Amino acid sequence: MNEHELLERINVLEYHQKLLLKLLNDPKLELYKLIIENGLTEQEVRKFYSLCDRLNIKYEEQKAEGYVYFHPLFHELSSSLPPTLKIRNVINACLTQKFYLSLFQELEKYL
């Protein structure tokens, strides 16, 4: 293992440690558990949050325009997740943590 790989692993561990400290105060933070269990980096999580921001905006716009089917948003989320994450686990964790609640309540229908 070279120095760069070692630094990357240390960064991931430090990030996971921060999440663990938050979990101690609130064990219902299922999304954080999922992040730690799947070894996601802080950069991967930022991309996921950005994706959720975009999907939530699309969802609100489409809902306002009268859309009733949101399967394309489900597909976009599913295809954009890191390979270690399963869509069912992500949606359930986000619902438990109340993360973009209305979006994930809608996406849950497509499981």
Rank of each mutant, 00 (worst) to 15 (best):
L55P: 01
R9T: 04
V90I: 11
L7C: 02
F99H: 13
L55Q: 08
E37P: 02
E60Y: 10
E37K: 11
L77I: 03
L29I: 00
K58D: 08
L103E: 14
Q62G: 09
L20K: 14
N2D: 10
P27Y: 01
L24R: 07
V68P: 03
M1L: 09
K28P: 00
L31M: 10
G39W: 08
N11R: 15
L101V: 07
F70V: 14
E108N: 10
C94R: 00
K98C: 13
Y67G: 06
E14T: 15
I57A: 10
P83I: 01
N2Q: 03
K47M: 04
R88Y: 10
F70C: 10
P83V: 05
L103P: 13
R46V: 13
R9M: 06
D26K: 08
K47C: 07
L40A: 02
L107M: 06
K33C: 12
M1H: 07
L55T: 14
K63W: 03
S80D: 04
E30D: 02
Y32R: 05
L20G: 08
L20H: 07
E61T: 13
E76A: 06
Y32G: 04
S78V: 06
E30H: 02
E8D: 13
L85A: 00
E30L: 02
L73W: 07
K47Q: 11
F70P: 12
V68T: 15
E61S: 09
F48P: 02
E5G: 12
H75R: 07
L20V: 09
H71G: 10
L21D: 12
A64S: 11
S50D: 03
N25C: 03
Y32D: 09
F74Y: 15
L55C: 07
L111W: 03
Y67E: 15
Q97M: 14
I10C: 02
N11P: 09
F70G: 11
F99W: 13
E60Q: 14
E3Y: 09
C52W: 03
P82T: 12
N38C: 11
I57M: 11
L13P: 04
A93C: 02
N11T: 15
F99D: 00
P27W: 03
I35P: 03
E76P: 01
L19Y: 00
E76G: 01
F74V: 12
R9G: 05
I87Q: 02
S50E: 06
I87V: 15
F99I: 00
E65R: 04
R54P: 01
I57N: 13
V45R: 10
N11L: 14
L81R: 07
L24V: 11
Y15C: 02
L101A: 07
F74W: 13
K98F: 03
E44Q: 11
R9D: 08
L24Q: 11
P27M: 04
E76I: 06
P82E: 03
E42Y: 02
K86S: 00
H75M: 04
Q97F: 14
H75I: 08
A93H: 05
S78T: 08
L34M: 09
K22L: 10
I91R: 04
S50N: 05
K28V: 08
L6F: 06
P83M: 01
L20P: 01
E106D: 07
S80V: 10
E60K: 11
S80L: 04
L55K: 11
N92S: 14
E30C: 01
K18I: 07
L34Y: 08
L111E: 07
Y49V: 00
Y59M: 12
A64P: 01
Q17R: 14
F48N: 06
Q43V: 13
S102L: 05
F104D: 14
H4N: 15
R9I: 09
L21W: 05
